[in-house]
Design a binder for these strands. Structure first.
Length: 219
DNA sequence: CACCAGGCAAGTA
DNA sequence: TACTTGCATGGT
């Protein structure tokens, strides 16, 4: 049973990898940029996030020190294109404050901390939920955590590969129990799921007939 | 025009 | 515990 499931999930990965090839996520030049992007992309189109990050770069504010010194209302103005700019400015400040408090303001210390400890610290930050925390851990800190998002849930439940009403933690456990714990695999797999969801598994008009995952559940 | 996008916290019953 | 609502821009 567990073995069958493992093969199934890996088969999904292989199908997607064959279809799309390497994804090379996360789009971001530095771990800090990845962290900021993880917060800004909450329920938000990535294109808008790029504009917001572009603003921060233009202002020379895309560093830990610069962001710490930046006034919250000004930060909100810079990240305006990404939407929810007031709450997100606060959330970014909360995140920076946590690193200040727990890691002496050293990003490197945070990235070097254990998976368990850094995850707990992230989840204590107001505005950082499980997906944002795990995105930071996987894509910025390079820790082996599988990131679950709405696309993951939609694609896998549409294909009846997981229960419809499973929660974040249960779904994550299924992936991590079924797959070898490998940063590169988790990174690529999640990125591939986003790609296939965007192309074939839209909320309103899915194009199931051309989807590379059709009949993946058959041996 | 309506709907959607790589969530999360806070409020209500 | 299990819904509901606010947050907000920009693309289709």
């Amino acid at each position: 049973m567990e073995e069958e499931n493992s093969n199934l999930f890996l088969r999904v990965y292989e199908r997607l990898h064959d279809y799309y090839g390497e994804q090379g996520w996360w789009p971001g030049e530095t771990p800090l940029e990845v962290m900021v992007g993880a917060v800004l992309t909450q329920n938000t189109n990535w294109g808008n996030v790029e504009k917001a990050i572009g603003n921060l770069k233009d202002r020379g504010c895309l560093s830990f020190e610069a962001l710490r010194e930046l006034d919250q209302d000004l930060l909100a103005e810079y990240i305006r294109p990404s939407g929810y700019y007031n709450v997100k400015a606060k959330r970014l400040k909360n995140l920076l404050q946590m690193i200040e408090d727990e890691y002496e303001g050293e990003l490197a210390f945070f990235f070097e901390d254990s998976l368990e400890s850094s995850r707990e610290n992230l989840l204590r930050v107001k505005g950082v939920g499980p997906e944002t925390a795990d995105s930071i851990l996987l894509y910025a800190a390079q820790k082996p955590v599988f990131v679950i998002d709405t696309y993951t849930h939609r694609v896998f439940s549409r294909h009846q590969l997981v229960e419809e009403d499973t929660d974040y933690f249960s779904l994550q456990q299924e992936f991590m129990d079924s797959l070898p714990s490998d940063v590169k695999l988790f990174n690529e797999f999640h990125a591939l799921i986003v790609s296939v969801a965007k192309e074939f598994c839209k909320k309103k008009k899915p194009r199931c007939s051309d989807c590379p995952l059709q009949r993946v559940e058959e041996k």
